[in-house]
Simulated assay, not measured.
Amino acid sequence: MAPVDIDAWVWWLIGAAALGIPLVLTAMPELGMLAVGAVAASVAAALGAGTVLQVVVFALVSVALIAVVRPIAARHRAQRPELTTGVEALKGKSAVVVERVDGSGGRIKLAGEIWSARSLDSDLAYETGQQVDVVEIDGATAIVM
């Protein structure tokens, strides 16, 4: 039986799959970018490009993806989420005093709900109808100033 010659484009696809498996196991996006480079080299091979051109296509596509995608991903990873939820979203909001608020307690209307509140500065008191700002949420109590 004669040996079977496998076309170069098939080898590149095998290489792409071989890079894809550790990508899934390790979650290293660089391996995915190398796999895309191997697929691009496979396309070049299928179109009849020589071995040197296939390697150049692989290298150029892989390096370009790593150079462009990694900084974008790092920037997105470093950004704080723009949408805050829960009690974090209440910090900095304005509220209206519905029952005198001082260092020992009181009540405010915050985001349409009645909250227990206390003054950040225990010497200050806020009267009914006065507008206050929420500085912090401590359990179920809003700390205001």
Rank of each mutant, 00 (worst) to 15 (best):
A67G: 15
V101S: 10
V36Q: 09
D121P: 01
A64Y: 00
L31E: 03
A45K: 03
V69M: 14
L120T: 00
A40P: 10
I66K: 02
E88T: 13
S122H: 11
R118A: 01
R70F: 05
M28C: 02
V57N: 11
A35F: 04
A78N: 09
I72Y: 12
L65N: 15
L25Y: 07
V98C: 03
P29F: 10
A38N: 03
Q131K: 04
V101N: 12
L47A: 14
G92I: 09
R100Q: 07
K91D: 00
V87D: 13
A35H: 02
R70P: 14
L124E: 13
V101W: 08
E88Q: 11
L60V: 15
L90P: 11
T85P: 06
A27L: 12
S62I: 01
A74R: 14
K91Y: 05
V87H: 05
G106W: 02
A117I: 05
L31D: 06
V55D: 01
S122P: 14
A95Y: 11
A67R: 13
L90K: 07
T85S: 10
R100N: 06
A111I: 01
S94P: 12
G37T: 13
K109Y: 06
T26A: 08
A67I: 11
A46D: 12
A46E: 06
S119T: 10
T128E: 15
R107N: 06
E113G: 09
D102H: 04
A95F: 03
L47T: 06
A125C: 01
E113S: 12
V97F: 09
L34V: 04
Q79K: 14
V36T: 14
L34G: 13
V132Y: 00
A46V: 01
R70K: 09
G106V: 05
G86T: 04
Q54Y: 00
V97S: 12
V56P: 01
R70Y: 00
G86Q: 13
S116Q: 12
T51Y: 12
V55K: 01
V69E: 15
V39N: 08
R77S: 13
V61W: 03
V36E: 03
I114D: 05
Y126D: 03
A64H: 11
A89T: 05
V132E: 08
D121L: 08
S119F: 03
R100L: 10
R100V: 10
P81K: 07
E113T: 02
Q79A: 13
A45Q: 03
G50K: 01
Q131V: 11
H76G: 07
R100F: 00
D133C: 01
V63E: 04
G48W: 01
L90N: 07
L60G: 15
A38T: 04
E113F: 03
S42K: 00
K93L: 11
G48C: 07
V97Q: 02
P81D: 00
T51C: 12
V63F: 00
I114A: 01
L31W: 04
W115Q: 02
D121Y: 00
G50I: 13
S119I: 12
I108L: 11
G37M: 04
T26Q: 06
A46Q: 09
D123H: 03
G103Y: 02
A117P: 13
G92E: 15
A74W: 00
G112S: 02
V63Q: 06
R80Q: 14
R77G: 10
V55R: 03
A67D: 13
L25F: 14
K93I: 05
K93R: 15
H76S: 12
I114T: 14
G129S: 04
L34P: 09
S122L: 08
I66G: 06
I66T: 15
